[in-house]
């Protein structure tokens, strides 16, 4: 059960990120993964659909490669809790590792409706390997 939830988190964010970086229109990708009324609160900063789409412009510009390392996840119907680390490499070489503590809720159609997360920088002194991801089908 837990392993299934961990796999779900990894695939959800991997495929979302991959599609966002390659899509002609990232708004179309957001609308497949996020419910129209979706709200995401990260470290106390709240963003809605429009702000999320605006946020993707710099993401598309700066993110070169990434890897989601899911440490643990639990899913109970539409509720999800997970702890994972995003390893990322930026355009000019900076390497980042960000640990995310996530509580999320999904709509009945499988799209993310609410996400509340706390993050912390866990970038190691020695850079981690960040293997570029490939595009995967969107989970439903």
């Amino acid at each position: 059960m837990t392993r299934i939830a961990e796999k779900f988190v990894e695939e959800f964010y991997n495929s979302f990120t991959s599609e966002v970086l390659t899509a002609a229109d990232p708004a179309e990708v957001v609308d497949r993964y996020y419910a129209a009324e979706a709200v995401q609160i990260a470290d106390g900063i709240e963003i809605d659909r429009d702000k999320l789409i605006a946020h993707l412009r710099p993401v598309r510009k700066n993110l070169v490669s990434w890897r989601y390392e899911v440490h643990e996840a639990v899913r109970e119907q539409e509720q999800l809790a997970a702890r994972f680390t995003i390893h990322a490499q930026l355009r000019k070489g900076r390497m980042l590792s960000t640990e995310v503590h996530l509580f999320a809720e999904f709509a009945p159609d499988g799209r993310l409706r609410r996400a509340t997360q706390l993050t912390r920088d866990v970038t190691p002194q020695t850079p981690q390997d960040v293997t570029p991801q490939t595009t995967e089908a969107a989970p439903q």
Binding site: A42, D43, G44, I45, I47, K51, H55, P58, V59, K61, N62, L63, I86, A88, L90, R91, K92, R94, L96, T98, T119, D121
Partner: peptide
């Protein structure tokens, strides 16, 4: 809006000639 935004901006500014430190207050 997030920690990654902070790093995107920091990375760009710290590459300017003469830059010695960049700090960002996200809120």
């Amino acid at each position: 809006t997030c920690a990654h935004c902070v790093n995107f901006v920091t990375e760009e500014l710290e590459h300017l000639p003469g830059a010695t430190a960049v700090t960002v207050d996200l809120p």
